[in-house]
Design a protein around this nucleic acid. Structure first.
Lengths: 232, 232
DNA sequence: ACTTGCATAATTGTTGACAATTAATGAATT
DNA sequence: AATTCATTAATTGTCAACAATTATGCAAGT
């Protein structure tokens, strides 16, 4: 288990200047990867010992994990790692559909021609990767996230970007990691990405939003089936 | 200024069992009402003194306020009360449009007949209130929030409800409080609410979402003009 | 006059101890 | 045997002191 004591100082990593943030990152990774199993009781003193820090900064990390819904906390009773269920994932995918649909609409309005060209190039690159890796799921995952992330950035909507990137994607990643790998529908996804990119290139906001929503709700249908099959 | 030292104990208020939560509520109210002005530097020791608690729980409160975007915090440099600008409000209204549109769609699918009847009754009540108060803005505000809140609850989507109620509405409330009161377009709003409720009653998901989005983007146009006029 | 560098002060980050609350254990009673 | 109640243990909440970092002000040099 990845329980390296966090002893690095400020200068070592300007990105994570504080113990609280470093432990936050570590714990987050452990939860998403499943090394901290769902439903695990979080005992502050234990975790503090494990990560080699005191309870103060660890507490801050826990609070931040609570905010991105990776941990549930009840006053005086402690915290547990979240347990994903179908209902929760359904809620997340619905929210994602709404937000990414809006992001695609805004991207169609705001993207520069250069950005659009870069987006198209990214998809070409994904096509190559798919051929080379022959459906090795991992790279497709990252490619998928790449695409969606770019749309969110291009929307120039800070709130949407933060919530997609900081919260929803984390939960989806966690779900993927722990429900075994999802099936490789790489070609379908790439086709849909291409259609979305083309709608954006045509500045067709309506269509870009529609296609993005269809893309995501389609993904949900597949995820849903997998989750249902697992619970039998 | 509302600087009552927080000395109450657990039994006094089961809803806010911890100093951190009580101070969170207090500070939140102070920020939204403007008693803690936008851009104010937050000094932990000062605030701790003001609220009569130590820095520990106060820090937790600050972290939570950061998460709902009422405070911005930079490591080792401290925190400030957020400063609302037009861009931020635009982002918020766009996100709200997407999420509440989805909520209306889900509500049209999931609401029971009883809930629909209750929603209709609520709107009748609002109509009465409008006549009685003759455009006194405050009650209209709360009525408006009432309606939107019910839709969010009816969507049965926990993520959407949490983000609307816990974060977006807070920022909109803050904007209203501090940009002077918004104009009373009570009758227009009520009409639109009625149309949305009717679409829900007919189980027309598509129309419910469409009308809700139009309602919110219309509201944004008005808010936008007000904010632009103020900055001249 | 402007910049540079150092010394000082102010503020945040971190820690370990203490208090309050909840959960667990087990004895006494019906 | 089951239930209640008190006792104990475990865990979270709170506090005040200490360390690390950043901001401030002043003096010296160019």
């Amino acid at each position: 288990m990845n329980s390296i004591p966090i002893t690095a100082t400020r200068a070592d990593n300007p990105e994570a200047p504080t113990l609280a943030r470093r432990s936050f990152d570590s714990i987050k990774a452990d939860i998403i990867s499943g090394q901290l199993a769902q439903g695990t009781k979080i005992v502050e003193s234990d975790l503090a010992l494990k990560y080699g820090i005191s309870r103060g900064p660890l507490r801050e990390a826990i609070h931040r994990l609570e905010q991105i819904k990776l941990i549930v906390r009840v006053p005086h009773a402690g915290s547990r790692v979240i347990t994903l269920d179908i209902k929760m994932m359904q809620d997340i995918y619905s929210a994602r559909e709404a937000l990414e649909g809006m992001a695609a609409r805004l991207a169609a309005r705001l993207m520069t021609d250069n950005e659009i060209a870069a987006l198209s190039a990214l998809l070409d690159q994904h096509a190559d990767t798919i051929i080379q890796t022959e459906g090795k799921a991992y790279f497709q995952r990252e490619g998928d996230i790449d695409f969606h992330f770019r749309i969110a950035v291009a929307s120039q909507n800070h709130w949407i970007l933060e919530n997609l990137h900081g919260e929803l994607y984390q939960l989806i990643r966690m779900c993927r990691h722990q429900s075994g790998q999802f099936p490789a529908r790489a070609h379908t996804a790439l086709d849909q990405h291409r259609q979305i990119a083309e709608a954006i290139a045509r500045r067709d906001e309506e269509l870009a939003e529609l296609l993005m929503r269809r893309h995501i709700s389609g993904a949900w249908e597949i995820v849903k089936k997998i989750l249902e099959d697992q619970n039998d």
